[in-house]
Design a binder for these strands. Sequence first.
DNA 1: AGAGCATATACGTGTCAAGGTATATAAAGG
DNA 2: CCTTTATATACCTTGACACGTATATGCTCT
Lengths: 111, 111
Amino acid sequence: MFEIIAEPNRRAILSLLVSSQQSVGEVERQLRMPQPTVSKHLRVLREAGFVESTVDAQRRLYRLKPEPLQEVDAWLAPFRRFWSAHVDALERHLDRMDQKTPTKRKTRRRR
Amino acid sequence: MFEIIAEPNRRAILSLLVSSQQSVGEVERQLRMPQPTVSKHLRVLREAGFVESTVDAQRRLYRLKPEPLQEVDAWLAPFRRFWSAHVDALERHLDRMDQKTPTKRKTRRRR
DNA sequence: AGAGCATATACGTGTCAAGGTATATAAAGG
DNA sequence: CCTTTATATACCTTGACACGTATATGCTCT
């Protein structure tokens, strides 16, 4: 999952598909990458469940599937808790600074 | 950034550090990986800004830094909008189903 | 049926990164 | 000092993967 999105071209493709579905040729043109490259990355993305495709005559339309990126999001959850705790600690620290050196301030602390 | 967290051992190390700072030896024992492996991954993590270290006699204590993972989080933002839009669409679809085939249900739709 | 377009796949090549083993650096303690 | 403990680094090997080029598959339209 993380290996999939580690590849810059694949991230570009995903970012492109977030707005709407695209054919291989459209991706090829917008991202200016050779067609086999696009096809190969789309294959990887499809097999990993990041996208799915439907057939439209000779074209294949690829669209995003939410699940894998939701898992990435879920993995981040504990870290989000960590860094919001960090911000809190910083704020408490600044509060102490405020007490020790009472100087004119505009607005601080507005929860 | 994404390359960094693509490596499973590094993700394990990050997950370990989210609770509190750890020395190299503590990581080594808890994750049961050889010491050079731990040191090398920590070096990569440090150079990418995911962790920082302080010296405690012969030990080095590594702790998490929030910024890089926050960037990952930021990259995910557009996709979050995408999949919440998707849930909404699904709900609207189910609402239509409800109207067309009015059958006994326990609880549905409780925003 | 044949030409042309859209997409997929096969194959060869180069690069890079992770792991293992060995060794270096450095501080602590007897 | 010398040994032990803690961590970092060097070197080598191996495997995976991304790319380019060439070719195959498959659909459409005349």
